[in-house]
Design a protein around this nucleic acid. Sequence first.
RNA 1: GCGCCUGUAGCUCAGUUGGAUAGAGCAUCGGACUUCUAAUCCGAGGGUCGCAGGUUCAACUCCUGCCAGGCGCACCA
Length: 571
Amino acid sequence: MRRSVSMSLTDRLTQGVQSALVAAGLPPAPDCAWEVPRQAEHGDYATNVAMTHAKTARRAPRQIADAIVKHFPPLDAVARLEIAGPGFLNVFLSPAWVAASLREVLAAGAEYGRGADLAGQRVRLEFVSANPTGPLVIVNARAAAIGDAMARMLRARGARVTTEYYINDAGNQFEALARSFEARIRQAVGEAVPFPDNGYPGEYLIDLAGEYVREHGLDGAAALQAHLDQWTKEGGASATERLGRWAVARMVEGQRRVLADYGVTFDVWSSEQHDVRDRGLADKILDELNTRGLTYEQDGALWFRATEAGEDVSDDKDRVLRRSAGGPTYFAVDIAYHHYVKFAGADRLINLLGPDHHGYVARIRAAMQALGHPPEAFEVLIVQLVTLLRDGQPVRMSKRRGEFVLMEELLEEVGRDAARFTFLTRRHDSPLEFDLAVATRQSSDNPVYYVQYAHARIRSIARQMAEQGIDVPAWDAIDLGALTEPEEQALIKRLLDYPEVVRGAARAREPHRIAFWLQELAGAFHPYYKAHRVIQDDRRLMLARFALCTAVGRVIANGLELLGVSAPETM
RNA sequence: GCGCCUGUAGCUCAGUUGGAUAGAGCAUCGGACUUCUAAUCCGAGGGUCGCAGGUUCAACUCCUGCCAGGCGCACCA
């Protein structure tokens, strides 16, 4: 980021306030927050510093405000200061400064909105991580949209982000899948075997079994038995496990493909089996925890003192690490994975989990803190459920019972951009009601098109000007002083807020702020476009407006990029 | 029973670490295309911010209690 914009306007205003306070013989304020007032008559920026500072400065708010106004240093950005209400300080920007500041947006281009406030942070961001026991469903699409936007946002502010998909390809769920898959294969070749209890009854397993039988040329029960016997002779993993591995590989491949179609790719795909269990990390972490005195034996099992570990969390009960029957629990494996693998390459972990895991958060956080990781180094964000409706009727989603709506189907019906944008106009921790019928019916008036359309219109102006052979000089050579309309001033001021919006969204882990802000920007642009023509005889005005529109288009494209949504040239 | 999330317009949701008269989209109603894309624009109606207290100059926002919905409380993952 260029030095001229590295210090934001509000920073400069704060500096002005502080120097004014000192010049007036008052103590500097510990904090000075700026907001954009809802109403234009309250100025472009406002601060309540005179009120919050009243106690420490031991003066009446209005007295402090008076002093600030009297001693405020001259800034070319500031046209005037006003005191209002109980002691608000309202700042009115100079129109000439506003118009000229457009140059910074244009000069920064695709870089505009990026910054370095998270520079040096190595973040490992895990999301989706659905069980490899079935295809991805709608809630996975929500997590994917949020996680991917989160990664883009954090990178834009300087963090080094590694995105990760963790595959739970071990334990009871894997075994249930393997047994279910074997049963489906046997049924596919005509054997009358019962389907296992606690299996995965979804139709996708029947399809997958059919594929397996076809690809291996198993044209009957005898051929299947020969196929399996060969493995038995070889020794090693059981036939059931081998079938399960095949099913998992196919399932993960399918998940990866759907996510790629959605525009979401991961830097790392890690496997519970290969990257943790096979490397003996589970045993290693038990030793580590033992050494630290964080465990005890009881009833033949090894327990973690979850109720005592942790600085800012405490679990409500201790947790088993090694079962009395032997073997580590998922929890033990997970501690090992976080500690040895994830923290090896990052100083900050962010996990997006579903609400069904929130009871798990306290124990894993406690474990991380017990292993010496500071509380803020390990963040868990709960992405709330998507309650699926079809014409107002709830649709239960359960992979176990085989009832769900696939992420693939969502993308076909609603489309990638609309789906992503819909998920990104909600807070991640807010439950979302998603009516498929309504979403399909309304997919053509999804708010995403409102934003994209603004971009397409702007690109269209550029095409028109090129077609008409209008010569556009470098931005620096254009006289922006022509931008005096209130709508033009308002648009530029919005653009100036953008870097701060991205910064705040990244810091709060809230990509939805960007989506809402883009809607507001488009909402300011469309009326302007309708009311004022760009291409016209007054060349000075035309070029200035073209510069403004180009900047708006640029920022829309930048913002949509952070959300993983396309910015079309035409619509 | 305990814990977490949520409760804001008819519906779906925002509300920027306490600010000034609580917003948007959809839906409803009334208008606007000879003009850079009408996937647009202009206007109207629509609210006890779940309820009740408390904190203070100021509460949708913070605290307490209650009500309602969702989720979780395994030697499953």
